[in-house]
Design a protein around this nucleic acid. Structure first.
Length: 420
RNA sequence: GCGGGAUUGGUGAAGUGGUUAACACGCCGGAUUGUGGCUCCGGUAUGCGUGGGUUCGAUCCCCACAUCUCGCCCCA
């Protein structure tokens, strides 16, 4: 038997319904915020991710799905969504008309070669948004607001963890300060952090091993190294978030895994028992340098992404209600081939008039068709009988009250419209 | 990439080194020859993840691999 690949999964049955519902909520909220749907390719030139996500991130150094195609191109299955959107922005010269910022959202599969565990797969789905073309702090607030409200509409109570890395100057200063601070204390850090010190000292801050050590607690804070402009931005953002009544807290140890972030960074965290490291449902930040880094004109931008699979898992864990259709309007029953023809005609007619209809395709006995109808939770049953059909009538049974009525086929649509 | 746990039918699961592998749900059929959801009766595994090994004999013991799962790393 051929089985699915490690770290992949089929979405079927109720899982599919739940996913569809979450996607519908996402679509609706993005429309409200006036974001436009965008699709970019699932595979891109490997170079794109090396130059955007950054060499210090594990995502690119050891987690990508790389291959050489028949034309000897180096291809990578996208591990995240921002790089592709930015590439598209540049390639399609969207910077040519920035009378308003470009606001887009995407929702699709991403790939990372990792050891799978709960809430983490090799193929997973991310929903994300990007705002390209404005440096206005209110756009930072808007992105956080959209992220926050998405979870809220889905029924998950979340908290926003917020930090600022400052502009490049601030970030460099901070980086230096951090290295100077940690160097004398290198022996008291965990093995991983010793490596991080050279490669990406910021990441030491969210190390789980050393989290409670004094060295980490007393480490220099990002905020102390923000220059005046960066600090003003950060304060202004918090004012806006207060105005929007968004539940956030400043976490000075928050840094993000991708190299391209500056200024605002944030994570969306759900308080779920036993969810551990999976409780980070999404995150994002500002990436003002990325477009230039990818050979576009210097353009400010900010984005957010959330893991769909993990979010659904969180909803299930919190016992949140998924609004999925749980019944059908009409089940059509028949007992012989002549009646089946009438069923064939009727179901077409009813469906085109907007009813959710089902019938039997298994040659079931009458009794078992009733069972089928119950399994589908049908609100009404249309029961075909040759004698009735001769008189151009059908029996309609209300499956709740059990009341049965003989209805003319001509009036059937109107009758059901009234009842439903 | 490292470490722990798991792998029995459509599903949830018992179980034992030795004739026919519990039970429950589901599904199908019948009691009820075209009006059901209750009840009762009957049916329902190319046989216990894959490949080796130990053994007279393995689903049960050993090894390898795969997948799932939990933790680490990393991240969404």
């Amino acid at each position: 038997m051929i089985t699915k690949q490690k770290g992949t999964y089929d979405v079927v049955g109720m899982d599919a319904k739940k996913r569809k519902y979450v996607c519908d909520v996402i679509d609706a909220i993005c429309e409200k915020y006036n974001y436009t749907y965008i699709e970019t390719p699932i595979f891109e030139s490997s170079e794109l991710f090396h130059r955007s996500v950054g060499e210090s991130s594990d995502i690119v150094t050891k987690e990508t799905y790389d291959f050489v195609d028949r034309g000897e191109r180096n291809i990578t299955l996208r591990p995240e969504g921002t790089a592709g959107v930015v590439r598209s922005f540049i390639e399609n010269k969207m910077y040519g008309n920035l009378s308003e910022p470009v606001k887009v959202y995407y929702n699709g599969p991403m790939f990372r070669y990792e050891r799978p565990q709960s809430g983490r797969n090799r193929q997973f789905t991310q929903f994300g948004i990007e705002v390209i073309g404005t440096d206005d702090v209110m756009s930072d607030a808007e992105v956080i607001s959209l992220a926050y409200n998405t979870y809220k509409l889905l029924g998950i109570d979340v908290k926003v963890q917020l930090n600022s890395l400052g502009d490049n100057e601030s970030r460099d200063n901070y980086r230096k300060a951090l290295m100077e601070y940690f160097k004398p204390n290198i022996d008291s850090l965990c093995e991983d952090c010793k490596v991080r010190l050279e490669k990406n000292p910021l990441r030491i801050l969210d190390c789980k091993v050393d989290a409670n050590s004094d060295i980490l607690k007393n480490a220099p804070k990002t905020i102390d190294y923000l220059n005046e402009d960066s600090l003003n931005r950060f304060n202004k953002l918090q004012e806006y978030l207060d105005l929007m009544e968004i539940d956030y807290e400043v976490n000075t140890n928050l840094v993000r895994g991708l190299d391209y972030y500056n200024h605002t960074v944030f994570e969306i965290v759900a308080d779920i028992p036993d969810f551990g490291s999976q409780s980070v449902l999404g995150g994002g930040g500002r990436y003002n340098g990325l477009i230039e880094q990818l050979d576009g004109p210097s353009t400010p931008a900010i984005g957010f992404a959330m893991g769909l699979d993990r979010t659904i898992l969180a909803m299930e864990s919190l016992d949140v209600k998924f609004k999925v259709r749980e019944n059908i309007d009409i089940f059509i029953m028949y007992g012989n081939l002549d009646e089946k023809e009438t069923a064939c005609y009727l179901i077409q007619d009813l469906r085109m008039n907007g009813f959710v209809c089902e019938t039997d395709y298994m040659g079931k006995s009458f009794k078992n068709q009733f069972k089928s109808a119950d399994r589908f939770n049908s609100k009404f049953l249309v029961i075909l009988n040759s004698d009735d059909i001769k008189n151009y009538k059908v029996k309609v049974k209300d499956n709740e009250t059990k009341e049965e009525e003989l209805v003319s086929i001509n009036d059937l649509v109107d009758y059901l419209d009234m009842k439903l």
